[in-house]
Design a binder for these strands. Structure first.
Lengths: 160, 160
DNA sequence: GTATCTGCAAACCCTTTGCAATAAG
DNA sequence: CTTATTGCAAAGGGTTTGCAGATAC
């Protein structure tokens, strides 16, 4: 019931993260991990950030308010992936990029080779292809990834 | 007209690589690069190897007959990608894996999480999805990648 | 002959890890 | 209290790069 939820004009939207944060805390406790302020700060900043990010961006973002060492970020990422909060999405310039997954629908990516921005889309046929091919090959699938690369509309215009 | 072309019993099949090698040499000359024995040895060993590989495997394979330094392999890979001979396929355990692309039809991958083997398949819908989404998003696409991960049939059987 | 390429070793850079101090439960 | 977690700094490990000698053309 938050009016700010989709208002980009609000610099620090007071999105209600309680459900997601509880899910993450629950995951930690269930698995014998501790709920620390560092892990909460990391998870919170990711939950506020629907976009793609890398470790450096996260580190710099956190540094302003709740400094957390890169070591702790690197140690937290596998936990967040295991908890279903995060997913690795792709490698660029030799380092990994992640995205928030929890509470979002599965989607694929368009990657611009010029400006390196990522655009998202959904295509229901992809799940069908996954199922059909897996059946044909006797594979027990657990997921799929589809990516298109090329030039986004802005970069096409720029290069004319 | 080589009888050995598809005969796995022949250890070192005398496949006719002249067409592919000529294409690569042509690429080098056209772009002002030199045709060296190292580049020829690298390209030849890849053309004989239709499977996926990484730099270390290539290095060890070459060492037996025509030793080439890793530095030269790393320097040759971008050229081979640019020439359309190779493509990066995926990252595993922190290092990149490649596959031969030249003269082969486009395909996608099934990746077994247990044995780490890669299986290939073709699905024509994927190209259609690429076109449709690109049109919708005003994107000028240059390629796509689709991957399914899970357990291959052998590993499912093993784990029962 | 001249400019590119090679091999070697060092540098890079992202990520992981050992360790002593700190904090969660 | 006990054990997990943190931050720091050092180590790892794949990839890149500077440089002097070798080689393609």
């Amino acid at each position: 019931m938050s009016e700010d939820r989709n208002n980009p004009a609000v610099a620090e939207p007071s999105v209600d993260l309680s459900e997601e944060m509880d899910a993450f805390r629950g995951f930690l406790k269930t698995h014998g991990y501790r709920v620390t302020k560092e892990r909460e700060a990391i998870a919170e900043s990711i939950l506020k950030n629907h976009d793609h990010f890398d470790v450096d961006e996260l580190f710099l973002y956190l540094r302003a308010k709740t400094p957390v060492s890169k070591a702790s970020i690197y140690r937290a990422i596998p936990l967040m992936i295991e908890s279903g909060l995060l997913a690795e999405v792709y490698l660029e310039n030799g380092h990994m990029h992640y995205e928030r997954v929890y509470g979002r629908e599965h989607h694929s990516h368009l990657r611009c080779l010029n400006c390196h921005r990522i655009f998202e889309f959904s295509a229901p046929e992809l799940g069908q292809v996954e199922k059909r091919i897996s059946r044909q090959e006797g594979f027990k699938s657990e997921g799929h990834k589809f990516e298109i690369w090329g030039l986004c509309s802005a970069c096409q215009a720029e290069k004319r």
